[in-house]
Design a protein around this nucleic acid. Structure first.
Lengths: 204, 204
DNA sequence: GTCTTCATGATACGACCGTACCACAACCGT
DNA sequence: ACGGTTGTGGTACGGTCGTATCATGAAGAC
């Protein structure tokens, strides 16, 4: 059986098994044996491709964020052939909400990692900083673009609005996750603010 | 030594030990033995006052939220003898930010509990719903009050603004917690929105 | 003054977890 | 052809964790 194997691919499969089982039972409840069983390989192999559990977790986090970033990008592209800035912003914000299983899992695990990162400097060095900064930059870019096109009301601070909308997205996402709020009401909140930011004649 | 002892008081002491050690090392890394050592009692006693670890965690969460609720209330009362609605709202929002050790611990542990609650129905039944709803109601009340006093700009939706501000508070809090943002910039965001919500002549 | 109940200590148990070790089969380079 | 590297399985080890058990001293009840 042992033919040469693509390590990167195997690591990805195992990382996806980690994400699946962690999404089902919670990251705190996941052991190497669970990941091995979910991936359909032996415990030894998980050890083989990831020397230690910490490395597995790190790789899992990176994989999770990459996959979700791609998903959000795809959603934005799917927002229309020639989407206006407002539609793109709305797509960006709602794509980040935990609506279906995949986005729920992402929110759940990303938050789990964030909590761990508070006391684990290896995790703290991971994309908790870089990744949201990229989202913020993208959102600021979209708002600036809309502003220069004259679509925004007077007095709008694009940076402050971008930060606010992303913080709201995170906060509302957690509320949805724990069942306090539903996705529709969160979307309504976004609409409220985009109505406020964009001119009445619409950015669509 | 064994004189009669106040169970409630003892449970509170142990719960505070739990909060302290969980704040230092993370909730996931806390065992009964750690709590016992932190509280200066034997492992057996922790078992005695809390039959099981789950009960300890539940009680710890309740204690944490109660204490923090009192803290926020105190901050609001301290916002001035006869504070305007805007000052009270600002106090409410900034008091919830993780600025010092206690508020950082609160944010950290509350988030930890929220993550656990995703798959633990005993935790899901805890104040994750009730507590933020109370905060939302309070904030809506303050905004309505300001609106009726003519302090708000036209077109402000008090419910939507309350939900947004609280979601922002949660989102910004997490950003601060993981070191992505500092408390001052978060306060600036609140100022930006309160400037927008309140009339130019000020609600102060 | 006994006797029950409360509070506390020490320690043992069983399970699980991450990691390490050992063995071996299959492939590749030479 | 063959020796060394690579991939894989099985399993054992040491530690920790939550919980259970046993024992016992001190305090209140009657």
């Amino acid at each position: 059986m042992p033919k040469r194997v693509d390590h990167a691919e195997r690591r990805t499969e195992i990382a996806e098994a980690l994400v699946r089982v962690a999404g089902r039972r919670g990251l705190h409840a996941v052991g190497m044996r669970d990941v091995a069983a979910e991936a359909g390989v032996s415990l030894r192999l998980v050890q083989y491709y990831f020397e230690t559990k910490e490395q597995l977790l790190l790789f899992g986090l990176r994989h999770l964020t990459e996959r979700f970033g791609e998903r959000v990008s795809a959603r934005i592209r799917a927002a229309g052939e020639e989407p206006g800035p407002r539609a793109m912003i709305e797509a960006l914000l709602t794509a980040a909400l935990p609506t279906d299983l995949e986005s729920r899992t992402f929110h759940h695990l990303y938050t789990s990692y964030a909590v761990l990162a508070v006391h684990d400097q290896a995790l703290a060095a991971q994309p908790f900083i870089k990744d949201p900064d990229a989202a913020e930059a993208a959102l600021v870019g979209l708002l600036r673009q809309a502003q220069e096109a004259g679509l925004l009301r007077r007095g709008v601070d694009t940076r402050a609005e971008a930060v606010s909308l992303l913080a709201m997205s995170a906060g509302l996402g957690t509320s949805i996750l724990v069942g306090q709020r539903d996705p529709e009401s969160a979307s309504a909140i976004f609409d409220y603010h985009l109505d406020r930011i964009f001119s009445a004649d619409g950015g669509e």
